[in-house]
């Protein structure tokens, strides 16, 4: 690692103060992305502001018509939460398959969402469930949050404090893992909520995207047959040694169908 100034604030206000005027400063949540990045010397932040001392940022609350999950809540806690399992079992299932047990004990929802890795799992859930992201300054709708490759709507110094997920009538997440990294090569989250049907795809492109044609078909008939002939274009999808763009496009339909079948169980 390169040298940096380390801060461990005890409150959000302290965190904001530590970040102020430090354009090369980085926030650390679980550290499951940041620490390997630092070890490989792929980043050289001037400051690292560690959020793990801010207790009020973690926690799961049953609220309104769903659950609100604090930004520093660990994947393990989401996966094992009785409240999440009762309200949105698909979300607990997704969390339980992020990374491996060591990663799940440290990684956080806020960190994952703020980082917006194209192969992360949570962005698909946030978009498919039409969740609301709360920051220390405002609330942001799911459709407005994820902007591009590792890019979100967050301003400098803005921190994700919680994400509120509405309950779904039917929901499921199906992930086709990269055989080496086990990140999502294609991950599809399908959800039928009071607001309608949403299909969100992660892993396949530079950023999570919705498949409107599948949403329309499923709104009429929520069955895997309804989408079996719907293909997403390969254009613009990721291509690497594990999967060509055409293969990923094909997997989107396969995983979407499996997600619908799972949601209907």
């Amino acid at each position: 690692m390169y040298d940096f100034a380390y801060h461990r604030p005890k409150s959000l206000a302290e965190a904001a103060a530590a970040l102020k005027g430090k354009p090369e400063g980085r926030v650390m949540s679980g550290g499951m992305t940041l620490i390997p990045t630092l070890k490989q010397r792929l980043a050289k932040p001037s400051d690292v502001v560690d959020l793990n001392g801010i207790k009020e940022l973690a926690g799961i609350k049953v609220e309104g018509n769903g659950v609100t999950i604090g930004g520093m809540t660990r994947h393990f806690d989401v996966a094992s939460s009785a409240d999440v399992k009762a309200a949105i079992p698909a979300l607990a299932h997704l969390a339980g398959h992020i990374g491996d047990p060591a990663v799940r004990n440290r990684g956080t929802m806020g960190g994952s969402v703020a980082n917006n890795d194209p192969a992360a799992d949570y962005p698909a859930a946030v978009v498919a469930l039409n969740a609301t992201v709360t920051t220390n300054t405002r609330k942001i709708a799911a459709d407005d949050f994820f902007k591009g490759l590792f890019e979100t709507a967050l301003e400098d110094g803005e921190l994700v404090t919680a994400i509120s997920f509405p309950k779904a009538e039917k929901a499921a997440y199906m992930k086709f893992p990269n055989p080496a990294s086990r990140y999502a090569m294609v991950g599809v989250f399908v959800a039928k909520t009071a607001g309608g049907v949403r299909v969100a795809v992660t892993g396949a492109g530079p950023c999570v995207f919705r498949v409107k044609e599948m949403e329309d078909a499923l709104a009429k008939n929520f069955s895997s047959d309804a989408i079996k002939d719907i293909k997403v274009p390969a254009d613009g999808l990721n291509s690497d040694i594990h999967g060509s763009a055409e293969y990923r496009a094909h997997l989107v339909t396969v995983m979407a169908r499996r997600a619908v079948d799972q949601a209907n169980k």
Binding site: N178, A180, S181, I241
Partner: peptide
């Protein structure tokens, strides 16, 4: 079924340079 050392034909870089891409 899994392992494959890959060098990029254009750049000569070792693409499968870590366990993120080399599947043990």
């Amino acid at each position: 079924l899994l392992e494959m050392a890959v060098y990029d034909k254009e750049t000569g870089q070792l693409v499968s340079g870590s366990f993120m891409d080399y599947t043990l």
